[in-house]
Design a protein around this nucleic acid. Structure first.
Length: 262
DNA sequence: TGTGATGTTGAATG
DNA sequence: GCATTCAACATCAC
């Protein structure tokens, strides 16, 4: 699930459920996804804390605590949040859970364990360390253009690189290319400034529209990727043929005859 | 039952 | 040093 719009939805969920409650205890079922401290240390440091606010940058969600340190939640491919009251509401792949002093629980569910949880003492330092780019919805058109300078990668690879700009994942990258009529394997250095600005505009519009629908695909316009990514079939409005290939190491769909290669 | 999966990383290569 | 590519990561669902 989690690209920028999905993580934005997780943020709303977290804000709406888990702030301003003291963590009475922490249970770790599987410490593998906790990356920089042991399960025991995680329990130790989180117990007694209260979440005060959140900050999202790309697909990274940081929860600020009452000691001004942060918990990083990165959802990987299959991370999910589950706030509940009754034990039977636990999800099958809950990896750890915060038990709040109001009797509620916030579970972190992740079947495939690609999620990354970190205890962060220095937020700015961490973001600098991993060279996390500006959020895709926050970056200005001028900075977006600046990021493209000197790049020879495919446009899809560029959009997926989280240090150029943060938040675009595989599905939305395909959608951005589709809606701008540009072949995802086009080289960044072959695109005109107008085309780059087109991509920038489509990116922000698509991400924002997705957020407005809470990243719930069934509410997306019917010509969006969740409908059109079907290999060998005609594209939306019966135009072109949907192709499936691999670009920048990721499965990629595009529509032959609609998206031009530069 | 083998294959692929909405993400990131580090090693290898140019 | 920089940009890019790609296999590896752990596991489940189809």
């Amino acid at each position: 699930m989690p690209e920028l719009p999905e993580v934005s939805t997780f943020q709303k969920y977290f804000d709406g459920t888990s702030l301003h409650q003291r963590i009475e205890s922490v249970e770790v079922q599987d410490a593998m996804i906790i990356r920089n401290v042991s399960g025991e240390e995680f329990i130790d440091r989180m117990t007694g804390r209260t979440f005060l606010s959140t900050y999202r940058r790309g697909k990274y969600l940081f929860a600020r605590m009452d000691n001004d340190e942060h918990l990083l939640l990165h959802f990987g491919m299959t991370g999910d949040l589950n706030y509940y009251s009754e034990p039977e509401e636990r999800t099958k792949y809950e990896r750890f859970v915060f038990h709040f002093d109001n009797g509620r629980h916030l579970g972190f569910d992740c079947p495939r364990k690609f999620a990354k949880i970190r205890y962060i003492e220095d937020l700015a330092g961490y973001i600098a360390d991993i060279k996390l780019g500006e959020d895709a919805l926050v970056i200005t058109d001028a900075d977006f253009l600046k990021q493209t300078e000197g790049k020879t990668a495919t446009i899809k690879g560029f959009l997926l690189n989280q240090s150029h700009l943060a938040g675009v994942g595989n599905l939305y990258a395909d959608e951005i290319c589709y809606q701008t009529g540009i072949h995802p394997a086009s080289r960044v250095n072959n695109l005109s400034e107008t085309q780059k600005l087109d991509i920038y505009g489509a990116m922000q519009r698509i991400l924002q529209e997705a957020i407005n629908r809470n990243a719930y695909y069934k509410d997306y316009p019917e010509n969006w990727f969740w409908e059109w990514r079907k290999e060998g079939e005609p594209g939306p409005n019966g135009e072109g043929i949907v192709q499936r290939t691999k670009i920048a190491g990721r499965t990629t769909y595009y529509i032959e005859g609609i998206q031009e290669l530069y």
